[in-house]
Design a protein around this nucleic acid. Sequence first.
RNA 1: CGGGCUGUAGCUCAGCUUGGUAGAGCGCUGCGUUCGGGACGCAGAGGUCGAAGGUUCAAAUCCUUUCAGCCCGACCA
Length: 501
Amino acid sequence: MAKPPKNAISPTRSEDYPEWYQQVIKGADLAENSDVRGCMVIKPWGYAIWENMQRRLDDMFKATGHENAYFPLFIPMSFLEKEAEHVEGFAKECAVVTHHRLVDNGQGGLMPDPSAKLEEPLIVRPTSETIIGATFARWVQSYRDLPILINQWANVVRWELRTRMFLRTAEFLWQEGHTVHATAEEAQAETMAILKLYADFAENTMAMPVIQGRKTAGERFPGAVDTLSIEAMMQDRKALQAGTSHFLGQNFAKAQEIKFQSESGELVHAWTTSWGVSTRLIGGLLMTHADDDGLVLPPKLAPAHVVILPIYKNDDQRGDVIAYCESLKAELESEHYDGAPVRVKLDDRDLRGGEKKWQWVKRGVPIRIEVGPRDIAEGKVAFSRRDLGGKPEFLERAGVVKEIAKTLETIQQTLFDRAVKLRDEATVEINSLEEFEKFFAADAPGGLAYCHFVDGPEMEAKLKKLKVTARCIPIDGDAESGECIFTGAASERRGVFARAY
RNA sequence: CGGGCUGUAGCUCAGCUUGGUAGAGCGCUGCGUUCGGGACGCAGAGGUCGAAGGUUCAAAUCCUUUCAGCCCGACCA
């Protein structure tokens, strides 16, 4: 009789981090690889987390005046050609549709019908700036039509050569916001407001601390004048770009003729922005909070806040235990957390207790409550917090119910505080290239390095050798005179450098 | 697109060197024993061995071709 392993997930983070990541996804039943290379199936538990993210973000977008709409999956190939940098950024990873009919290939299979070739190939959207821009060009005539504040929830396809579930897949789900403004200032303000919104969401809903910053030229979105991003640090000390907000200037407006007549009667090009977050956030959520027993979910995103596990030996006990659990569930559900009833799952499947418990541990449910005949007799429950681990506490039933919202908030806060601490411990200021190379040596743990720098090819070359990237220039960083560690030139601000996903 | 590797049960894989009735573990189904903890026993279902061609009395095994996938590199707003 083999003893169960000490941890639910094998290997552990320290043994093999990438493999641990895969196993957490599997253990939590979030997703699996599909029959299509590079594309994944998001399973109900994983999709429920995404739905919770969507709901919250959607409310935030609406509250700031944005409206949802939907644009086509297909984009005429010629649209992509209009913005030079944009082409360069995406052309290499586009799925292309060339035919509209299949015929028998004469060998018992199918092939595209040569007589059904499209006059102009369509590409599957890798992002929608071009087709939305073309649409906006029709919508905008007058300064009175502005601003236009649109968001769409959609799937996009980028034909990636190397994929990792949630972090980089050929198809992924996201939201893309697209706005049009009369002035550069207004568009820049929008870009910044969305960055703040994303940071708010990451920190207060996902409990994932982020750095808000501006991208260097090399990391900018193709076609953007300015790219802002939120950057999070994962438990392996690598950075993850968790959301981007782009000030597109007049680049797309000019490429696509988005023009309007101003108050003074002149015909001028509009200013546009775009911004997005994707299912990649689930990967970030996982790598921020999960441990060697699997996923750990912040209560605000958990599909279930509490799972109740009945424990009984026979059918006689079963009836009593289930009844007690049902009433406990109802009581908990009458409590509110985060503006909605507490989400409770009663797992009465006919499975062994141990196996059942570990399934929920691996799925990351914030609170587990086990109820057996002994607890019923004493008016107690066996109460376990996922973020703490260890043995259950036997608590008074009434107290648990009364405190449930407060407990959930405590868990949410604990996860955030823990993540901040981990990040801060891995953060350093570095003032010389020598120190920098040591910090990012192959066998060093790495982390986030704040350094003076001057953007340019010399820096890019040195970074590439170390497999390090400039993550961003923090927007709340204080101006401070210094010397670029790569070139020695004068610098006014520090940037954040890290290895990244 | 270079370099390496793998295709056998739902999953992970053994068998191939030396050709001779298709295997294991997990999972699944049933029955029983267990049960405050990731159980155990017994019985069972499940595979044209990636595909095509060749050698042979005989091919999962040898040869040729082909398809698919994985890893390393290159690439990756």
